[in-house]
């Protein structure tokens, strides 16, 4: 729907993937790091998470989550941003580096080395929980009462 004409869909997808990955894992996959300058060194703060009354109605404040953000610039001038859940500054740094690399000529190799494994691991995690949940699905059968 809205993503059909969203020019930022790709970037949104990889930033989301990086935010939800574990910090250590992104660092492992990001083998060689390019030099960069900080535009905003990693900073820990919070985001107020909102819900909707009745699931679909008026927004309300549910509570906050911790978030770490940073921005950096590669030698070529490309800027990378990161907003990641939690308080892991190294995670934010890696996520911003990958965000920057994905906008350069190194995008294809970065996708293969970092994003593809993260995608696979995320779907594996999801699938594991989904199968466990599916195993707890109730199969009803109806007992016919003797009154008929």
């Amino acid at each position: 729907m809205k993503d059909e004409i969203d020019p930022n869909a790709d970037r949104r997808a990889w930033m989301s993937l990086l935010a939800r990955a574990s910090g250590g894992r992104v660092a492992e996959l990001l083998a060689d790091r390019p030099d960069f300058d900080w535009l905003r060194p990693p900073e820990i703060g919070s985001t107020m998470v909102r819900g909707r009354a009745g699931g679909t109605g008026t927004p309300f404040n549910l509570g906050e989550i911790t978030v770490t953000r940073c921005a950096l610039r590669l030698a070529c001038g490309t800027v990378g941003h990161a907003y990641v859940q939690g308080r892991d500054k190294a995670h934010a740094e890696c996520a911003a580096l990958v965000d920057a690399l994905m906008q350069t000529a190194a995008a294809d190799t970065t996708r293969v080395r970092v994003l593809d494994p993260l995608t696979r691991e995320a779907s594996a995690r999801r699938a594991t929980r989904a199968t466990k949940a599916a195993a707890t699905k109730v199969e009803f059968f109806t007992m016919v009462r003797g009154e008929d």
Binding site: G45, R50, T66
Partner: peptide
């Protein structure tokens, strides 16, 4: 003690990955 970066968009519980 945390600086507030902003507010989220309201979460969509309709797309929840349900454990239960």
């Amino acid at each position: 003690t945390l600086p507030r970066f902003g507010g989220s968009k309201p979460i969509d519980t309709g797309v929840m990955t349900c454990d239960r």
